[in-house]
Design a protein around this nucleic acid. Structure first.
Length: 474
RNA sequence: GGCGGCAUAGCCAAGUGGUAAGGCAGCGGUCUGCAAAACCGCGAUUCCUCGGUUCAAAUCCGAGUGCCGCCUCCA
C-alpha cells in the first residue's frame, strides 16, 4: 500500500513519492537557541524522529537536516539582559539542546547546520533576489517584496490572500518597508554585538533566509519533506517558500511536501511565557522516563492538538509500562528451557502477522501513531495471552513463535523510537534479586519484602508470578 | 473582522458511506504469603444539535451551537 502524507500546501493527503527513489530528505525547523526547549518543542522533535525511524524501518534511506537558529532577536535580547554576547548565549543553549535531545532518545539529525555558519550563502541568495527584482535595499536593510511574489501565489501555503493580510496588518511606526507585508532579508547592524560585513553594510540576516539556504545546501533541490510546528506555517514557511520560489523558479523546485505538527497545550492552555506555564523537557525528564514522554506525545495523531494534563500523563505511564513489561514477561518465559509435547500456537503466529499489517497501514496513512500504538497493544496482549494459556506448552516450536512475536513487538516499537527490550539489571539489583529468590524459596517473606523495598529504592520493581520472580526497571 | 481546524464513553483516542479500534480509569471474578501484575467478564442502541441526500452516515450536504489555532515572536 502506498505511503500517504498530508501536505499543508495542498491541504490533502498525497502519496509520498520521493524525489530520488528509495531516499527521503527531510528538513525540520530546529530550535532558536535562547532557552531550554519545552515539551511542545519536544513534540516536534519526537514526531520527526518517529517518522524518520519508521521510514528507515520501511527501508528508505533518510537524510534529516535540522537547523539551529543561532542569530535572532530573542537571543540578542537575552544576551543584552544578561550582559553577555549573543554568541555566548547561543553556544550555551546549543549544548543544552543536544544534551536534552539525547536524553529524550531522539537521534541526532544527519546535519545540524547553524545560521551563523551560512552567512555567505544567505548573502548570495539575497543578492540573487535583489538582482531578480524581488528584494530592495533601504538604508542598510534589505526587504523582500511580497507584492512581487503575488503572481507566484504568495499565501498559498498558509491559505491566506494578500488583501486580507494587508487589511489586518499592523502599522509599524519606524517602517522603512514599501509594504507592511514585506519582510527583512538583511537587518542593518544596531550594535547588538553580532554582525557581518555585507554588500549593504554591516548587519545580520533576517528571519526566513537561513532555512532556504541550508535546506538547499544539505539536501539538494528539490527535497522531499519540509517540516515544523503548525505556528511556523505563517509567516515563516510562507516567506521561506516565497524566497525559494523567487530564487529557484518554482515551488516544485523547493520542497515537495510540507508537514506541520499540532501544538501541545498545558492543562488546556497554550504554553506561553506570560502564563508562565512552559514545561521544559529537561525538567520533566528528572521525574519521568523519556519513553513515557514519547509514548504520550505519539498517542495522538501528530496534527491534532494534544493536552498535557496529570491524568493524561498518568495514562501514558501505565500504557507505556504495559508494553515494556510484556517483553520482560516474554523474556522470563523464554528463559526457561524448551519442553517436549504440546502443539504449535498458530494463533500467536497469525496475530503477529496481522499486527504488523495493522501497524504498517496505520503508519502509512499519514503517520497515524495513535492507531499504530493500538496495534502494539494488540500484539502485547496476544503474547501475554499465549504465555498464560493453560495449553500453551513451551516446546521448541512455540519457543520460536514466542520469540518471533516478542521480537516483532520490539521491532515495531523501535520503528517509533520506543526501546521496549528488557534492560539489563545493574550488578547490585541482580544480587538483590538473587537473594530475594532464595528468601522466597525458604518462605522467608519478611526478608523477601525487605529486599523488594530495597529494589524499589534502586528503581526496580519485583513481581512474583507463576513463572517465578520478575525484576525490571521502573 | 478575515482565514483555517476540531466536536466520538469518566479521561485520552482511531475510524471519510456498510452498521462504533485501542489505551487509561472504574466495577465484578480468577490468581496470589503479601503486594503488584496478569487473565476473564462488564461499558457509547450511538458519534455536539437540527434538518437533508442514501437501501445504508460518526463518516456526504445545509443550518446552528461550542471549543481551538493563525492573521504579531512562538515547535
Amino acid at each position: 500500500m502506498a505511503l500517504r502524507i498530508y501536505n499543508t500546501l495542498t491541504s490533502k493527503k498525497e502519496e509520498l513519492v520521493p524525489v530520488r527513489p528509495g531516499e527521503i530528505s527531510i528538513y525540520n525547523c530546529g530550535p532558536t537557541v535562547y532557552n531550554f526547549f519545552h515539551v511542545g518543542n519536544a513534540r516536534n522533535f519526537i514526531v520527526i524522529d518517529a517518522i524518520r525511524r519508521y521510514l528507515e524501518w520501511k527501508g528508505f534511506k533518510v537524510k534529516l537536516a535540522q537547523n539551529i537558529t543561532d542569530v535572532d532577536d530573542k537571543i540578542i535580547k537575552k544576551a543584552s539582559a544578561e550582559g553577555r554576547t549573543p554568541g555566548e548565549v547561543a553556544r550555551e543553549f546549543t549544548a543544552y539542546y543536544f544534551e536534552d535531545l539525547e536524553k529524550l532518545g531522539v537521534r541526532k539529525a544527519d546535519v545540524n547546520p547553524k545560521a551563523t555558519e551560512h552567512i555567505k550563502e544567505m548573502q548570495d541568495l539575497i543578492s540573487v533576489l535583489i538582482g531578480k527584482g524581488f528584494a530592495y535595499e533601504q538604508n542598510g536593510d534589505v526587504y523582500f517584496s511580497v507584492e512581487k511574489a503575488k503572481a507566484a501565489g504568495y499565501g498559498k501555503l498558509s491559505h491566506k490572500n494578500i488583501e486580507e493580510l494587508e487589511a489586518g496588518a499592523r502599522i509599524d511606526v519606524n517602517e522603512q518597508k514599501n509594504s507592511p507585508l514585506d519582510f527583512a532579508l538583511w537587518k542593518k547592524d544596531k550594535n547588538e554585538g553580532i554582525s557581518w560585513d555585507s554588500p549593504w553594510g554591516k548587519g545580520r540576516p533576517g528571519w526566513h533566509t537561513e532555512c532556504c539556504v541550508m535546506s538547499a545546501k544539505y539536501l539538494g533541490l528539490p527535497f522531499d519533506i519540509h517540516a515544523g510546528g503548525i505556528d511556523l506555517v505563517f509567516p515563516h514557511h510562507e516567506n521561506e517558500l516565497a524566497q525559494a520560489e523567487a530564487a529557484y523558479g518554482s515551488t516544485e523546485k523547493f520542497a515537495k511536501y510540507w508537514l506541520h505538527n499540532g501544538h501541545l497545550n498545558i492543562r488546556g492552555q497554550k504554553m506561553s511565557k506570560s502564563l508562565n506555564n512552559s514545561l521544559m523537557a529537561r525538567d520533566i525528564m528528572m521525574t519521568m522516563n523519556s519513553g513515557v514522554i514519547r509514548f504520550f506525545l505519539l498517542s495522538a495523531h501528530y496534527r491534532s492538538p494534544l493536552d498535557w494534563t496529570e491524568e493524561n500523563v498518568a495514562s501514558a505511564v501505565a500504557g507505556y509500562n504495559e508494553l515494556r513489561y510484556t517483553l520482560s514477561r516474554a523474556a522470563l518465559a523464554l528463559d526457561k528451557p524448551a519442553v517436549e509435547g504440546g502443539s504449535p500456537d498458530a494463533v500467536l503466529l497469525e496475530k503477529g502477522k496481522a499486527m504488523e499489517e495493522a501497524f504498517v497501514s496505520a503508519m502509512d496513512d499519514d503517520f497515524n501513531t495513535a492507531s499504530a500504538i493500538a496495534a502494539l497493544f494488540t500484539c502485547a496482549s496476544e503474547i501475554k495471552n499465549s504465555i498464560k494459556k493453560k495449553d500453551f506448552v513451551l516446546n521448541a516450536q512455540n519457543r520460536e513463535v514466542l520469540k518471533l512475536a516478542a521480537a516483532k513487538l520490539a521491532s515495531l516499537g523501535g520503528a517509533l523510537g520506543f526501546r521496549l527490550e528488557t534492560e539489563d539489571l545493574s550488578a547490585e539489583a541482580l544480587a538483590l534479586a538473587a537473594e530475594r529468590e532464595k528468601a522466597r524459596k525458604i518462605k522467608d517473606f519478611k526478608a523477601s519484602d525487605e529486599l523488594r523495598a530495597k529494589l524499589d529504592k534502586l528503581g526496580y520493581i519485583a513481581e512474583d508470578s507463576r513463572m517465578g520472580q520478575m525484576v525490571f526497571k521502573k
